[in-house]
Simulated assay, not measured.
Amino acid sequence: MSGGKAAAVDAFEQLGLTSYEAKVFIALHRLGAGTARDVANVTDVPRSQVYSVAESLEDRGLLEVQQSNPIRYRPVSVDEAREILREQFEREQDRAFEHVETVKNEPVGEETQEDIWTVRGRDRVADRAVDIISQADERIVFGARLPELVTDSIERALTERAAAGVTVIILSRSEAIENRFADHEGIVLSHPPDHRADDQRSGRIVVADNDSILLSVLGGERSETAIWSSGSVFASVLIQLIEAGEELPPE
């Protein structure tokens, strides 16, 4: 089987057809129409299997059967098949996720909730930071030691929230970082405490609305790991502890 045909068969399988169904459907489009013998001659589906596979394809609405002797099969058009498979896929998708929504809301005894999450990798940490920043309504504290940790998406999210009236505080000793925000109205620049000056592993900190927090540390080879929490007792307590230790500017 050629690479293109194999890829097509794989694609049809992703759409819900079996391997034999995909091969018979493709063969019939190659033939235009044909008998089980014709199909078996141009594909590796055994002739004895073509009948049951064709019946299944007929049930799916993907081919028509001519009641002749021998029986002949004709596939529906490509556009019609595309629409049929799309509708079937969407129905199955809806059915699957409706079930997920149902079981998600079912009680399972003692309620548990994961309050603390871990994110690894600079890009993923940056994405999570943007999510937290974008949801803030009142106050944001963002801190970073290195300029490269302030991505364009983070800068954009911070300036957008500041423009929306949210108090935004940038916490850094980096002149490059300060320069990026110096001309943005509504953004306050601040320095971390002196005892943090020698910290070489700190990455980013995000605090939003005293409700969400992200803290990251840097490792070797540009690695970064963060913990974050939102809407949890853990987040509230950690924010209070950090602010009590003068890690963050007060409100």
Rank of each mutant, 00 (worst) to 15 (best):
A81F: 05
R47S: 12
A81I: 11
T43A: 08
E55H: 10
T43L: 03
A129D: 03
V130S: 08
E101Y: 00
A54H: 02
T35V: 11
V53F: 01
E64S: 06
A22W: 04
E13I: 14
R82G: 11
D127H: 07
E55A: 07
I116Y: 04
P107I: 09
V103N: 01
E21W: 03
L62G: 04
G61A: 10
G32T: 11
V103D: 07
I132K: 07
E87G: 08
Q93K: 12
V24M: 03
L15Y: 03
P46H: 08
S52E: 13
G34M: 10
T118V: 15
R47M: 13
E13V: 15
Y20K: 13
E21D: 09
D123W: 01
E101W: 00
E55I: 03
V24P: 01
A96K: 12
T118G: 02
G32A: 09
A126I: 06
T35D: 07
Y73L: 09
I26Y: 00
R82F: 05
Q67N: 11
R124N: 13
D38W: 05
Q67Y: 05
V125Q: 08
T18P: 05
Y51A: 13
V42T: 07
V24K: 00
T18H: 06
S52V: 13
S19C: 11
L31F: 04
V76R: 12
R47C: 06
E92P: 02
E98W: 00
A33C: 12
P107W: 04
Q88I: 09
L63T: 02
P70Y: 06
Y20A: 14
T102S: 08
V125D: 05
V65C: 03
I132E: 02
E111G: 10
D59M: 10
P46C: 11
S68F: 01
